[in-house]
Design a protein around this nucleic acid. Structure first.
Lengths: 195, 195, 195, 195
DNA sequence: GATGAATGAGTATTCATTCAT
DNA sequence: GATGAATGAATACTCATTCAT
């Protein structure tokens, strides 16, 4: 299994750095190889093509992210608390990965439709996580019983995404994590929750 | 003034069609010229470069959009009503411009950071409009008095944007306009408004 | 019609020189462009891709060759004379086009199967010319009446081709044209003709 | 001596299969190694480089072929009979080695000039065999006394080669061996022989 | 002897922009 | 103003060969 070999992760991490520092269109394979400390050809022992690097990058990083949230949520009873965990982790995830934040919020969005479609499939895991919290909240009557799950999910994801993108576009110069409670209050209000 | 000459608008409209039908990365200047019925070189009599076409496109179309919302809002008293107008116009704007919806929600996002930064400047007008409604709502005590305007604005814009993008990605196959009231309720809840 | 524009022929002639002097695998498009005195990109205004240059080259040059033989044959009555014209023109064609001889006898044969198949289609015109002479000779009873046309054609073409290739491989250092009568006698014997 | 070790022949046979089934340009060393059941690096214990595999392949197979013809000829008195043996063996050789026929008649010709020159050296043994038959025929006055040996050899080889190539290009779908007598008659006529 | 992971040189093609007419 | 032929920079990927184990 290639994905567990050290060079696999090494190349992905190199790609994050190179894309963040040079921009999507200036992230040549040779640059990534150099940053990873391997030959150009070695890249192709671990990835089918350049596109595969980008999608794998997103899958690996987003996968870890979703897993960690799931663990964090597991300890919480109330849907409102789960939502807070999600928001906090989202903020911390962006804050704690300077380069990755740039790559996922800005650079990777320049990729072509094919890549974006595949990235969307990976994102689905995150969206389903949000759905689970919402459905749970409705079932326990914490949230409005007539809540439109899809719209609420779009609101939550859209808000967090817009927040993240704005923050990255402003060069990450303010503190994202301290805003988590305020975001939580807004979104909780929206879905009819109380705190 | 080039902007008022017929070919200026002709080229912009051609760009919308070409980008929507071919995708951002397949929207070559020569294709746009052909669609506009002019020679390649003529484009450069009206636009500095390709980037200038895209930004001008966004400026023209978004400008009209903001103007129309401002007119719609003018007739409303309550902030909650203004917010509803904004949401409805947003949905109608997307629904009524098949090609433009694809271009602004999907294709133009693949442009590089430079263009996206300039697009963001154009968007500022829309964001300020949202801010105005929010500030008005806080002042009239319709909305929570401790509302974080910036976060609330990011939530509103992020929600509408995410909603629009999802809708376009799903080939615009469901009705966006009928969802406006539900969105309105969610967002109004969030900011502490009542209806 | 691109094929009549001067640059079309200019590029083809440049390709002949570059391939002859550098070998098939060292004949980069940029070298051909330089030799033709045009920019790399200009090549693609006249040819679909590199393969198209090679096939067009073969088509143009072989087309002229076959035409000239047809003219030469037209003036002859006897099939034996026609065969002599064909052989003489074949020898003269190779002798008089130093570079082209190298390209068609050696270099172009290194091309991949796709290109070779398309080249074969062009060659068909030449093979049909041989067939016509043979059929004519059989009908006029100059040649054996039980002559196997296909085999005889393979013999004539195979002999001329082998002769040409050997000559080019030996750096064209002996006179090909003086051998035409001897070749003619051999092949005429073969098909049962007299002289 | 490496040439007598089993892996030497194993690799050559693998090369024949791989080249025949994949084409010259798709016959990577790694594919040959896989087909031979050895590691890539092992190839280089038996062959200097890829070129060496191809030339060795040709030398081994052509060597066996020439030996067998020499044996067949040994039993014949007349030059005309010897020529018939050569033609029959040539046809049988191609007919009986499906893969090898493809490799020698089509694929190996795509190799570069260097390899083709070395292959020609190997072919020399075959051409000398033809020469011997021709000289013998002239000396016994079976053939024309003013026969140009070189041209006659080029005719015989060129004819057989063209016949073989055409047959392979047509997917070997007709019977080659039954044509031997007709070819024999043509070539015998050419050199002035009687039957 | 045998392995196979790692290497790194090399090239066709696209397309925004220009400028002579 | 309008044209469109010409420009030329820039980059992913393959595969023969090596060498540490």
């Amino acid at each position: 299994m290639k994905r567990n070999k050290p060079k696999y992760k090494q190349i992905i991490d190199a790609a994050v750095v190179v894309i963040a520092e040079n921009g999507y269109h200036q992230a040549q394979v040779s640059k990534i190889a150099k940053q990873a400390g391997v030959a150009d050809g070695t890249i192709y022992l671990y990835f089918k093509n350049k596109e595969d690097i980008l999608i794998s990058l997103f899958r690996e990083k987003m996968g870890q992210f979703v897993e960690r949230i799931e663990e964090g949520i597991a300890g919480k009873q109330k849907a409102a608390e789960k939502l807070l965990v999600l928001i906090e982790y989202h903020c911390r995830h962006l804050s704690g990965n300077h380069h990755l934040a740039i790559v996922t919020q800005l650079e990777l969005r320049q990729s072509n439709k094919d890549i974006r479609l595949k990235i969307n499939k990976v994102l689905k895991g995150y969206l389903e996580l949000i759905d689970k919290i919402l459905i749970n909240g409705v079932e326990t009557k914490e949230f409005s019983e007539d809540l439109n799950i899809r719209l609420a999910r779009q609101m939550i994801f859209g808000t967090l995404d817009e927040m993240g993108t704005t923050w990255v576009m402003n060069d990450q110069k303010y503190d994202l994590i301290v805003q988590a409670p305020a975001i939580h209050r807004l979104l909780l209000n929206a879905v009819g929750g109380k705190y």
